[in-house]
């Protein structure tokens, strides 16, 4: 098991190098940070000084090599826009995004999984049909629209929940958390629902269709023929087999929650990494964008590792081959 994890981490290194290269290459050719930083009036000498200060006059591969060497040491450079170390900037914004994504993920799983199981087992009941109709809304409405609608109803018309920001946060060491204050928790509700709704309906529909598939299988028929109770059949046999394919997709989707919380963070002005990225893209703040993409790659690699480990826990067929 340990050697498996180690080999997975070793495999991740080329992946991260490639992601770093692509993101760095992409950003090296989008927009000119120098023009943006200097404003409208500048002399050629000022421009040359800034270019050489940022190292932009060096060949592309030298820039990339420097970026990698620095990045390995945890140094992602200085933000062009904010003139602060990128590492510190991201560390500051990370808790907000992680807390938002985590809440959305818990919400999506805690509601999506049971609803999927229910609609799979009782597929013809009126309630199941109702849930399925609503789930169509969830998968087809774009995230920003859901966010705006929620703001309209709960913040503007009913006035019960805040429409933007993170509320009060408490500092725990380097981690700022909104979980511990009432206003922080209230502020979390709408963004978490917005971010989690699509995942929730996706998980639900996925679990349902897998469940229907599994319930048609021979081993479920045989379990019925053995006289097992519906409870033992549905939860002892059907659910486990449903989870094997579901884990893969859910794992990737949850990675997507962290990576693509950009829209939700923008709609709710949530002070997380997504908002930082959007603001950085606007001014071609290359160090921030590169570091962000690298971090997301790390998150996905980490989640894939967890997914593989979960497989081992669920499916004995994989364990036997080790």
């Amino acid at each position: 098991m340990f050697s498996f994890i180690l080999s997975r981490i070793l495999q991740a290194i080329p992946v991260l190098l490639a992601v770093g290269f692509i993101s760095f290459a992409m950003f090296a050719f989008v927009g000119d940070p120098v023009t943006i930083m200097l404003g409208q009036d500048y002399t050629e000498a000022q421009r040359a000084a800034l270019v050489s200060q940022l190292g932009l006059d060096q060949p592309f591969f030298v820039q990339y090599a420097k970026f990698v060497v620095e990045a390995v040491q945890g140094n992602f450079g200085i933000s062009y826009r904010l003139a602060r170390p990128v590492g510190a900037l991201i560390a500051e914004r990370l808790p907000a995004t992680v807390e938002l994504a985590l809440t959305a993920a818990v919400l999506a799983l805690a509601i999506g999984l049971p609803l999927g199981v229910y609609t799979g087992i009782r597929r013809n009941s009126a309630l199941s049909r109702l849930i399925m109709v609503f789930s169509l809304l969830g998968v087809s409405l774009p995230t920003f629209l859901i966010g705006i609608l929620l703001i309209l109803v709960f913040a503007v018309q009913l006035g019960v929940l805040p429409s933007f920001g993170r509320g009060d946060v408490v500092q725990l060491g380097h981690w700022s958390t909104g979980f511990l204050t009432a206003s922080g928790r209230r502020a979390l509700v709408l963004p978490a629902i917005t971010l989690g709704l699509f995942q929730m309906t996706l998980i639900m529909r996925l679990v349902r269709s897998e469940m229907l598939e599994v319930l048609r299988s021979d081993y479920i028929k045989f379990a019925r023929a053995r006289g097992l109770t519906p409870r033992a059949i549905n939860f002892g046999h059907a659910l486990g087999n449903t989870l094997v394919p579901v884990i893969t997709i859910v794992g990737l989707q949850l990675g997507g929650l962290i990576a693509f919380s950009i829209v939700t963070e923008t709609v709710f002005q949530w002070p997380g990494m997504g908002l930082l990225l959007v603001q950085s893209i606007g001014v071609a703040d290359i160090p921030v964008m590169s570091a962000y993409l690298l971090l997301i790659a790390v998150v996905f690699v980490g989640i894939n590792l967890c997914v593989d480990l979960l497989y081992f826990a669920v499916d004995p067929r994989l364990r036997a081959n080790r």
């Binding site: 299988s217 021979d218 081993y219 028929k221 045989f222 053995r226 046999h237 486990g240 087999n241 499916d315």
Partner: peptide, 18 residues
């Protein structure tokens, strides 16, 4: 199971793999 048992055709698919 208790009074009428059943044996199915394909043993590769009648047992829960997990």
């Amino acid at each position: 199971g208790r009074r009428i048992g059943a044996i199915f055709q394909d043993p590769l698919t009648t047992l829960d793999p997990l």
